[in-house]
Amino acid sequence: MELRCDRLWLYLLGGAILVFLAAPSVVVAVTSFSDSQFLTFPPETWSLRWYHAYADSIEWRAATFTSLKVAFLTTLIATPAGTAAAYSLRMLGTRFSGAVQAIYTMPMVVPVILIGISLFFMFARIGLNTTVTGVVLAHSMLAVPFVVITVGSGLANYDFAQETAARSLGAYRLKAFLTITLPQIRVPVITGALFAFLTSFDEVIVAIFISGGDSETLPRRMFTALREQIDPTIAAISTCLIIITGGILLAVQAFGFSGKRSRS
């Protein structure tokens, strides 16, 4: 009991931080159920009309579909690329792996706005601006570091002699990786894939520069919409995004937990 009292201030501080972090999302979520034309908090009357507005709008539906498509394609590219990159770091040995890892994870460090500007100029030359391909490539670049880090941590304690053994037993290298290594690092690979999906699905800055028209993603459309007309549709969409994102993060947690348990 004494211990509890000593730690009381810790609980209070932790609780305060949680409230601080969650409050904006809660405000948005509550606002989205308003019946008013304007963003009001707390709402005076309640309704689901803004959810209907979201679902009935062709533009919003198109942007949502684009975002899902881009995030899915990004996951398909970034997961194998990041896994291969993490693998290469282990193969390189300690002498070069530090420098190469810094390059692999650079997109996390460079300010995203710089990435957006440079991609805009580069894509302008090769005609990739406002294309789905361009957005997918850009998002893949942003997502690879997350895969490199999660898969890299999965490979950190992996005994590569297993792969060597598989090769001595008759498996060519890729086969050895697919049948022996990959099944044992599937939890970090799937975790990395979920992070890659989220990285793309949430991304707005690069999308502002290079997406548009058919390739306009949901966050980008929300950003433009906010400038033109402010109505609670945005709040409704945001609430949907929070639910999807939160769901994926919970999935990551649950997956990581079951993975750890089955290994012990």
Binding site: A161, A165, A166, S168, G170, Y172, A176, Q184
Partner: peptide
């Protein structure tokens, strides 16, 4: 290549496949 040499190998760490 190693996988076509048809040589059995036993490793110090045994390198058994835990999965």
């Amino acid at each position: 290549p190693a996988h076509k040499r048809n040589m059995g190998m036993v490793f110090q760490s045994y390198a058994l496949f835990p999965h």
